[in-house]
Every structure is written in structure tokens, then in C-alpha cells.
Nucleic acid binder design. Structure first.
Length: 353
DNA sequence: ATGATTTGACCCAC
DNA sequence: GTGGGTCAAATCAT
């Protein structure tokens, strides 16, 4: 069901060879980039090469991390399809809060409380870091295709900025227990770290309400009501995918998915020129890439089942050490399904298929 | 009037 | 005891 890699991926692959392959590939791309750096080559070409380099090294690092993880297989399905998550070996806790037990009778963690030691952090989480860019006068947003309602904000010790807490707008309608936390990073106020908890049981496309954003600040605090146009959904998705990290705390697994359009956002796009610019930008970047990757933002239940692009496996101890630099600026992602790859697609996915 | 956000208080894991 | 997560009343926005 949309998983890109077999469960026994680690055991089956020749990890060392793949790591070498990725590093070699990255080096080759770097050479190509160097050769065209001062040339007339298009910006897109250069960015593709840069992303190829980043992706190669990301994958190499991922494989190194996995190799040290005792063969543990991370969850492979990214967050936009939380209901599709398949983690049979790690209990999925949707709502760990004792006080919010009004609806969690249906969820596994409720059983966990009876069965054994139930740690608060034993819950499936995804982390997504989004860079908000003002380079071109646009503000980004943290929209991910779902409707969220803010239910709290808290100053976090040691953090410059407060953390905002959101739950699915349809928590009570669809018993959707998905939540997320949004927090600006100390290092870069333009980068938001979004932690998703629990899985959506609602249909994002069917439930999204319509209300355009009023201000960038609204987005920063998690504007919940926005119905992007179909094309905007691609940007929305791209923002969301910009830097995705998935983890199950109890299994000490994390998956990272690097994706970004440069400054592609629609949080405060209120004039058509800007919007057209972004569309062109997206088109340029996605030209030649998987249509299934570009367009699916409006079908929330699908567009994440297919991916699993850049994976990074971390210990729980690494969770707090997520860096933004390596993952927030990746201008491109690649489709998980090699069949979707265009001939232009620069990345060697041989290790993943 | 209705729904979203803010914010102080509460609960509980650590 | 402290800090993080959540609740819920008050407030705000539409």
C-alpha cells in the first residue's frame, strides 16, 4: 500500500555498495555542477544538480544511520497519508494524553496503558521543517492539506519562541485525533519545525474549509482555514514536503523527506502576479518529473502513500538534534516510484528499487 | 450566532 | 518540583 521499500529493505540490500554508489553519484553530480557553474546553463539545471548532490548524500547518510540501527526498519509512509501507515511492529499511539481520553478509546495507546509501561513519548510522530521565505515578498505557511485548530500555546524552556498546539478541526466530527505542534526554530526564525502526532482519520480534501489567510502571522500560528486552488495545492504540498521527518519514538525511527520549492508558498499570495510566478517556478522545477508527484495534493489520502523519498533513520536521541540546514533547502524531491522518473531525472535510485 | 484563537489553569510524566 | 501537553472559559473574528 504505497510503501516504496520492502519491510526487509535493510536486510535485502547491499548497503555498503549503495552508500558508495550514492557518494559516487553525488561526487559526479558535483563535478557536473562545477563544470556548468559559470556557464549559460539554466538555473533549474544547476538546482537539479545541487539537489541531486544533496539527495545522494542524504541517502548515503540514511543508509549509514540505518546500518547502525540494528536493521530496524523505519516507517516508510510519510505523513500526508497517516491512515496508511503501516507499523505493525511498533505500537501506534495516537493520543497519549490522559486528559484527552474522551475519544481515544478507539486507539491502541489506550490499551497500552493497561498492558504495560506507557511512556508519553511512545507515539508516532512526524517532523516537518518548513522554511518561510520573504526573499520575494512572499510568506510561507505551514499548511499541509489538513484543517487544524489551535488549542494551546506554550513557552518552551530554552526556546526563544512559543510552541503552538493544534488538533484536527474534525476531531469531534470524525474522531480524528491527529495533532501537530508548530514551533519556530531558535537558529532560524524563518524555519518552523512541525511535529505531527497521531494519524488523520478524516479526509482532508473533504473536510477542508474555505477561508483565505489574512496575514502571514496567521500562518505562523497555524491558520487552519484555507482552501488552496488546485495549483496552489502543489505548492502547499511542496511546503509540507519541504522537510519531512517521520519518527516513531517508541521504535526510535525517523524518516526524513526532503523537498522544497525555493520560496514556494502561498501564505500571503494575494496578487496574481506573484501567484503566476510561483506557478511558473513550480512548473520549471517539476518539469520532467512525476506527474503523480506534482499533482496529488488535493487527494490527501494518496499523495504520501507513494513517496518515501529521502529517509533518515535516527535514534530518539537524535530527535532533538534535527538540523535544518541539511534538509530545508532542498529544491527538489524525487518520485518514489522509479517508473515515474523521467529520463531527465538525475538521481540514481538503483538502491531503492 | 458561530467558529477560531488566546491564555491561564490543570494534569501528569519525568 | 518542573516542564510539556491539554482543557476550557474568555475573547476575537467573521
Amino acid at each position: 500500500m504505497g510503501l516504496c521499500l520492502p519491510v526487509n529493505f535493510i536486510e535485502d540490500m547491499d548497503t555498503s555498495a549503495c552508500i558508495i554508489n550514492e557518494i559516487t553519484n553525488g561526487m559526479e553530480l558535483a563535478k557536473q555542477l562545477k563544470s556548468i557553474l559559470g556557464s549559460e546553463s539554466s538555473l533549474g539545471t544547476k538546482q537539479v544538480l545541487i539537489q541531486g548532490i544533496i539527495s545522494s548524500y542524504d541517502r548515503a547518510m540514511m543508509m549509514v544511520n540505518w546500518g547502525h540501527s540494528g536493521g530496524q526498519t523505519p516507517p516508510l509512509t510519510p505523513p500526508l497519508a497517516p491512515p496508511m501507515l503501516s507499523q505493525p511492529e511498533s505500537p501506534v499511539s495516537v493520543d497519549e494524553s490522559p486528559r484527552s481520553g474522551d475519544f481515544n478509546q478507539n486507539f491502541d495507546d489506550h490499551q497500552d496503558k493497561k498492558v504495560g509501561s506507557k511512556k508519553r513519548k511512545a507515539i508516532t510522530t512526524w517532523r516537518n521543517q518548513i522554511r518561510i521565505s520573504t526573499d520575494n515578498g512572499l510568506e510561507g505557511n505551514t499548511d499541509d492539506g489538513y484543517s487544524w485548530r489551535k488549542y494551546g500555546q506554550k513557552d518552551i524552556l530554552g526556546a526563544k519562541f512559543p510552541r503552538s498546539y493544534y488538533r484536527c478541526t474534525y476531531r469531534y466530527i470524525h474522531q480524528c485525533m491527529a495533532r501537530k505542534q508548530v514551533q519556530r526554530t531558535d537558529e532560524d526564525p524563518m524555519v518552523f519545525e512541525i511535529t505531527y502526532r497521531g494519524q488523520h482519520t478524516c479526509n482532508p480534501t473533504a473536510t477542508k474549509s474555505v477561508a483565505p489567510p489574512k496575514s502571514p502571522e496567521k500562518y505562523e500560528t497555524g491558520q487552519t482555514n484555507h482552501q488552496p486552488l488546485p495549483q496552489k495545492s502543489g505548492e502547499m504540498l511542496s511546503n509540507f514536503r519541504e522537510n519531512l521527518k517521520v519518527s516513531t519514538s517508541d521504535s526510535d525511527a525517523m524518516v526524513s523527506n526532503s523537498f522544497a520549492f525555493p520560496s514556494a508558498s502561498f501564505g500571503s499570495i494575494e496578487n496574481d502576479q506573484q501567484f503566476d510566478f510561483l506557478n511558473e517556478l513550480n512548473y520549471d522545477f517539476l518539469q520532467g518529473y512525476s506527474p503523480s508527484f506534482v499533482s496529488p495534493a488535493t487527494s490527501g489520502s494518496n499523495y504520501f502513500t507513494e513517496c518515501g523519498n529521502d529517509f533518515q533513520h535516527h535514534d530518539d536521541s537524535h530527535l532533538s538534534g534535527i538540523t535544518t540546514a541539511s534538509t530545508t533547502n532542498s529544491p527538489l524531491a524525487f518520485p518514489a516510484d522509479s517508473q515515474d522518473l523521467s529520463p531527465n531525472f538525475p538521481f540514481n535510485l538503483g538502491c531503492f528499487i
